[in-house]
Design a protein around this nucleic acid. Structure first.
Lengths: 109, 109
DNA sequence: TGAACATATGAACAATAGTTCATATAAGTA
DNA sequence: TACTTATATGAACTATTGTTCATATGTTCA
């Protein structure tokens, strides 16, 4: 493969900045806890305690996971009285999660 | 949220086995090198040396990355004379990569 | 205000993943 | 067959990530 062709292909890759951001996003989904959180939040918004109960993990672990998801803007929060309710950030994330589920189905077959 | 509702939501999650597999897949995409490899292979099949040249990384690093992708059945190989040509495993992976690119675009805006 | 509940966070430690180096295998070619 | 090129792999080291523990912050309610 010649120089020119190689350059052309590299040129079609996203910028380093964008690549890093995508990788961080996938990195967040690399952990079952966080993936499960997103799958749950796709069903409905939840407070931290509910998530703890559902996944049977420590308060701290869940909170740290949520922070990671928050920092990547995959989830957002809304204060409701004593509770902090988490929900998926936007339609884009919802599509991402939907794709996970589809991926899961194809994997089962 | 009551016990029954919690159980129902958990029940809708994929099995642990499937979850792990999905997470492994995302884990593979968490590394810019591997993500870039998939983005390149979506453009066209490539041999290892081409990928090395394009990404400017050591032979060993690329080969290890390819192994990870192979083990997750994200890429497959075909021997062509002296060269081992890598290509995306199937349409499903292609969709996954396409989604990355879309993700990238939304990220830029 | 103080007690109880809900959540967040820093620091330390443990687990995982990535990179490099040395070396092995395998095919093509002189 | 020996030599070169192409690729793979194990082991050691390094870096990154996840988990736990202790503690802090913020909210409600008596």
């Amino acid at each position: 493969m010649d120089e020119a062709a190689i350059k052309a292909m590299i040129h079609r890759l996203p910028s380093e900045q964008v690549l890093n951001r995508i990788c961080q996003t996938f990195g967040a989904l690399q952990c079952t806890t966080r993936l499960q959180i997103l799958l749950l939040l796709q069903q409905c918004p939840l407070c931290v305690t509910d998530i703890e109960n559902m996944l049977g993990q420590s308060q701290s672990a869940i909170s740290h996971s949520l922070r990671t998801l928050r920092q990547l803007d995959l989830v957002r929060t809304k204060r409701e009285g004593r509770f902090t309710v988490y929900h998926l950030a936007d339609e884009h994330v919802s599509v991402l999660v939907e794709m996970c589920k589809q991926h899961a189905k194809e994997m089962e077959s």
